[in-house]
Amino acid sequence: MTDTGRSPGRRGLIRAGLGAVGAALAGCAADAGPVRPLRLATGPRGGPYNAFGQALARAAAEAGPLELVPVDTAASVDNLRRLDEGSADLALATADVAEDAVLGREPFPRPVAVTALARVYVNHTHLVVPAAGPVHAVADLAGRAVAAGAAGSGAQVVAGRVLRAAGLTGAAAAGAGPAPADVRLMGLAESVAALRTGAVAAFFWSGGVPTPALTELARELPLRFLPLDGHVGPLRERHGPVYTAVALPAGAYGLTAPVGTVGVGNYLLARDTVPADAASALLRVVFDRWRDLLREVTAGARLEPRFAISTGRVPLHPGAAAHYRSVYG
């Protein structure tokens, strides 16, 4: 996305607004005691959600008076469940999982009352195999061991849907077609180690570009990144427009040409019990510090309001809606 917030007027407005909201919140804190810390469900330690959450907590602390407490989790599915039960106030999650939660689709037994503050960046789905290996397309994963993301992660969801669309899992794989893939649920570090030793033939990862762990692996082991853009259409037909066609750019991981793949947005979410002024203050931090925040998870990304408000079936938090109207019209 293109940043349209470069003008001094807009950035000045953001800074002025942040000070005004901060002063208002500080006044409330003086009357009613300290502002309650907001628990932010992130992801596993060392992963991009965890890095983003830690960076956001630091930025909020510097802006004051918001206090965010990042919580290590299994990522998207786990985070939505924590929001639902009230053990987290804020969370990061992929757009597909968030929409499943709002609509009460599997793995959620009923609709989850959750709201969005912003879409913050887009994950790129990586399907990684050794360059010297026999796997050149998703169909070649038939009968082979595949690491499909950590349990409860967004990577697990998109990997499962790609494999199902290819007829390698579920009912389609139980018939006379190709042998099902041997799906194993592993986080990124475990997946990298398993590919390095040959314990799996491939692994899925959903994250920003470049992902440092993959950059490091590519220096040790020549890699092939399988194209997945041909699966975008079927995924959109079945699951809606949460999936988009994106590309791993040339230069990342030593790629000599772009590789088309599946993109899915990442949302910053909140329970509707989060106060409107706190939601607005947090968004002002996000927009004032987006360069620092996104540097932690993906290169070259930008954040602007028209991108941020594109949260599909997940409704905006009332404080977020008021923020966008008041600041950007």
Rank of each mutant, 00 (worst) to 15 (best):
T2C: 11
G5S: 12
G5A: 14
R6K: 11
A16M: 08
A29S: 07
A29T: 02
A30Q: 13
A32P: 15
R39M: 07
L40Q: 02
L40I: 02
L40R: 03
G43I: 02
R45L: 13
Y49H: 15
A55D: 06
A63C: 03
P65F: 06
V69A: 14
V69H: 13
N79G: 06
G86Q: 08
S87N: 07
L90S: 04
L92D: 04
T94Q: 14
A98N: 06
L103C: 10
G104Q: 01
R105W: 11
T115D: 12
R119W: 03
V120D: 01
V122Y: 07
V128F: 06
A131E: 09
V135W: 03
H136L: 15
A137W: 03
A137K: 09
L141A: 03
A142E: 00
A142F: 03
A145I: 11
G149S: 00
G154P: 04
G154A: 05
Q156N: 10
V157A: 07
R161V: 04
A165W: 07
A165I: 07
A166V: 04
A166S: 04
A171R: 13
A173Y: 08
G177S: 05
P180C: 00
R184L: 04
A189L: 09
L195K: 08
R196G: 11
T197Q: 12
G207N: 04
V209G: 09
P210G: 05
L214P: 13
E216C: 12
L221K: 11
L223I: 06
P227S: 03
H231F: 14
L235C: 05
H239K: 10
G240Y: 05
P241Q: 13
T256Q: 15
V259E: 00
G260N: 01
T261K: 09
V264S: 12
Y267M: 08
D272H: 14
V274N: 02
L282C: 00
R284F: 15
V285R: 01
V286Y: 00
F287P: 02
W290V: 07
T298I: 05
A301V: 08
T311K: 02
T311W: 13
G312A: 03
G319F: 08
A320F: 12
A321N: 08
S326M: 15
